[in-house]
Structures are given as C-alpha cells and as structure tokens.
Amino acid sequence: MAKKLNITNNIRTLRFFANEMTQQELAEKVGASRQTIVAVEAGKYFPSLELAFRIALAFGVKIQEVFDCEAEGDK
C-alpha cells in the first residue's frame, strides 16, 4: 500500500520575502479567495495542480520551492 504523503508548504516564508505580501494580495494574484489561501497555508487544504502553479508563479519561484512532501515513516 502506498505510504501517506505529508505535504508541507513555505507560503508564509515566501510571503514574508515578497515584501510581507498579505494573504489577500496573494489571493487576488492567483484568483482564489483569501479563505482558500488561509487553508492552503495552514495545510488544511491541498490545492489543485493549477492553483499550486499559480501560487508558485505569484512568487516567481518553482513549485518545489512552495510545496514539499515526504512519505510518512521516512526520515
């Protein structure tokens, strides 16, 4: 059976380095609601591939720099 993936993100850090971009600003840039950005940042919602790419594009980085994952039990 496939191991469960533990997906994490660096959105908070990236927002900080993007001149303290607010969640609302990021939401407007990617065409999502602030509620969705809040949920993604808190790991309560895993975005679609499209939204994930949009978030990465909003920060001008590669998607791997925004999202990371490891299989549970690794490490």
Binding site: G31, S33, T36, Y45, S48
Partner: peptide, 10 residues
C-alpha cells in the same frame, strides 16, 4: 468582487 469570489475549494 474579490471578497465574493468562489474558487476550487468552495
């Protein structure tokens, strides 16, 4: 418009 937006999570 931004406040009332609905997206994929909705």
């Amino acid at each position: 418009n931004h406040e009332m937006i609905t997206d994929e999570m909705d």
